[in-house]
Design a protein around this nucleic acid. Sequence first.
DNA 1: CTACATTGTGTCATAAAAACGCAATGAAAA
DNA 2: TTTTCATTGCGTTTTTATGACACAATGTAG
Lengths: 254, 254
Amino acid sequence: MTFEKELKDHYFHGHEKYLRHISVDCVIFGFHDNELKVLLLKAKYAGKWALPGGFILKDEHLDDSAKRILKDRTGLDKIYLHQFYTFSDPNRSTKKINQQFLRNIGFKGGKSWMFERFVSVGYSALVDFTKVKPIADNISDACEWFKVNEVPEMILDHRHIFEMALKNLRLQLNFQPVGFNLLSKKFTMPELQKLYETILNKKLDRRNFQRKIMSTGILVKLKETKKGVSHKAPFYYKFDLIKYSKALKAGLGF
Amino acid sequence: MTFEKELKDHYFHGHEKYLRHISVDCVIFGFHDNELKVLLLKAKYAGKWALPGGFILKDEHLDDSAKRILKDRTGLDKIYLHQFYTFSDPNRSTKKINQQFLRNIGFKGGKSWMFERFVSVGYSALVDFTKVKPIADNISDACEWFKVNEVPEMILDHRHIFEMALKNLRLQLNFQPVGFNLLSKKFTMPELQKLYETILNKKLDRRNFQRKIMSTGILVKLKETKKGVSHKAPFYYKFDLIKYSKALKAGLGF
DNA sequence: CTACATTGTGTCATAAAAACGCAATGAAAA
DNA sequence: TTTTCATTGCGTTTTTATGACACAATGTAG
């Protein structure tokens, strides 16, 4: 099938395959250059950026939809996604956007399930920036990381969805393996501290942070130090996953 | 319209009024006799208990749906509802239940939007037990409070939904006016402590609890004491709403 | 081989939390 | 009327956690 034919099929027959009125949007966080980032797609023709989102197969758990959608739209695979909120403002209609989109690719309007109201379920994920290679799908012009403090204009209520995800991330910090998911296997103490500072949006005392995080027992100090820094080389650490998961049940206390 | 005609209309024309595939379920908590309780409806014919739930008008925010549904099904009005999770297991089908229901009231099967898959959005609320008079609607046999540790068998995944709501309540305790919503205007210190103990599911030291809660400044001690207890009479307290809402922004720390 | 930015470890003062003591109270029992 | 008893209100002591800061150690750049 050609791209145009596929699209037309999606607009006029997609409701045979997908549930009406329900969609999923994913907020993907990464950490790189000591900055928290979010992964966005540039919607073709609309010109604005969007969260990777999609629709629900008729017999699919939303958790699985989120995984599939993320894979299809960005290439990211085997990512743990976490549902955080459902957005149901009746004005969050994709009708105008979708009609515009259809016109742009040469179709006249008509009736489509895609013009109807959608309630969107928000999922978020934390990924190891260095391990993933995002690839835009064919209805997007680009797929890029943005610093969370410098997100561009987004379609619909995607900015609101993104902000809720960020807020939720703060609440999760003490109860989910946020550090493990966002950092590489091994990392330095300043890197971990910067991650906490970014998510909590406040400065922490370097020495007190070290004492507190080490007292939880979730870290193992490695023999290896970071090379190529023009000052005292910091040690690498890794997570003790067993102690980490135990500690998370009670909460870390940051 | 007669009851039967209304029902038939709902089954075979409801989709013209409501969104397909989406529903709302409400978990209503109350506190009475030093016990946390949940409000359930007894589904007619099914014999099992259920959370008060319902459907979404085509142009309605889910927050408003939840309010409307709660009002219609239990009589509770002006209740602050809080969305906590969306349940999307593809097996959570109401098809069998609804077909049984139709047969029981004398209709043969057929095709109905009510037989299709539903994704349900969970809302929870905290109400002053003494202030509300729950009234069952006409598709329920009863509307009753149950102790959270003694909930009866429920339809579908309603037990799971209820348990998620209870779990969520624990997280809210430090950031939402849980005490204010669940207790009467005035209350004693042991009552407040019991509420915290029930929600947190652990014993607290009476003296340390008093000191900690008073140090937050959210309570005002009244002159009045509780009458008719065969031991030292405890004082009544009320919330200082301004200080309470300020303190909640930073979290109470329980 | 010195300068420099940064790390690793430690100390001290203070605040918060946990554990416990005891007199006061008010209805019920004697 | 007096005593009993469960419970409240207010306190103390001990332990633990937090915040603020000092200083030596280290790896590269100049």
